[in-house]
Design a protein around this nucleic acid. Structure first.
Lengths: 139, 139
DNA sequence: GCTTGACTTAGACATTGTCCATTGTAGGAT
DNA sequence: ATCCTACAATGGACAATGTCTAAGTCAAGC
């Protein structure tokens, strides 16, 4: 079930109840929770887990490259466990729903040398914005 | 000098000293200040301008479509006066420097229908990340 | 079953942004 | 030129998100 948990264990992570819960909460496709949402769900399984621990644990997972930080809106970072398949995001401007997408083309190749200003360009994020079917129907 | 100021005046904006200062601070190319940076520079010209006014004024300019909100890092929104030529951003992962870039290609066309999940896709943001020449030299 | 260093906790603190009631003022009307 | 009035600015409280620290707790190796 939890591939994420397995990978973390394989890296010699000290396995605590708190970390297990955070990893379990984050597992899946199209999962993009904020730190607070992760905390809320973690609390429902492990009532005494603290906010600081959730933030720490998420931060460590990001450092290990097992989870991606995404910021599709300005309110809070979101955490995406799907770190091993490169992908971009499609965000509903109204309700904030997020889907992972895999566009054709390679944006990195589209940035000409004379537009790089001498930077060593290492990555690119693409965020598509629109209205999801749900919000379009309700509107 | 200030095209931005001219455009705003043309929209029937009530012109106050505060708004003038904010518009002047924001004018130029490759300008991507945070609200607090705008406030700091505005204060040096108009000591009694308040934070709330800067936030309000920036928000209004964004609503009018004369200024873009950019969030290249998670710390604070940045404001980009270059709203009338579509462009994307190249960000230094170390020092946060930002350049406007104009990549070839059209990312919107690269998103296949079966990856749109029924969304009405209206826009796309592309953020390139790398290390700027300055930081590369110091490293 | 100990020991130890890493992990967790609670809460104070920092940063960024928003709101509201009050005061001030730009720009049209007189 | 002066007055009015709606719109703008002020400042300070508040909210949301995230970070830090000191003290207590526990997983994992011996």
């Amino acid at each position: 079930m939890s591939d994420l948990l397995e990978r973390l264990r394989g890296r010699g992570w000290r396995m605590t109840a708190q970390r297990r819960v955070v990893a379990e909460v984050l597992d899946g496709d199209h999962v993009h929770l904020t730190a607070d949402e992760v905390h809320a769900r973690a609390v429902s399984r492990l009532p005494e887990i603290s906010r600081a621990t959730v933030y720490n644990t998420l931060g460590e997972m990001v450092s290990l490259g097992e989870v991606l930080e995404v910021s599709t809106d300005r309110r809070a970072k979101r955490y995406d466990p799907n770190a091993h398949r490169p992908h971009h995001h499609l965000v509903c401007a109204q309700c904030g729903a997020i889907r992972d997408v895999h566009p054709a083309g390679n944006p990195l190749a589209d940035l000409p040398t004379d537009e790089r200003y001498g930077f060593m360009v290492s990555g690119v994020e693409v965020t598509y914005r629109g209205i999801c079917p749900n919000c379009a129907a309700t509107a």
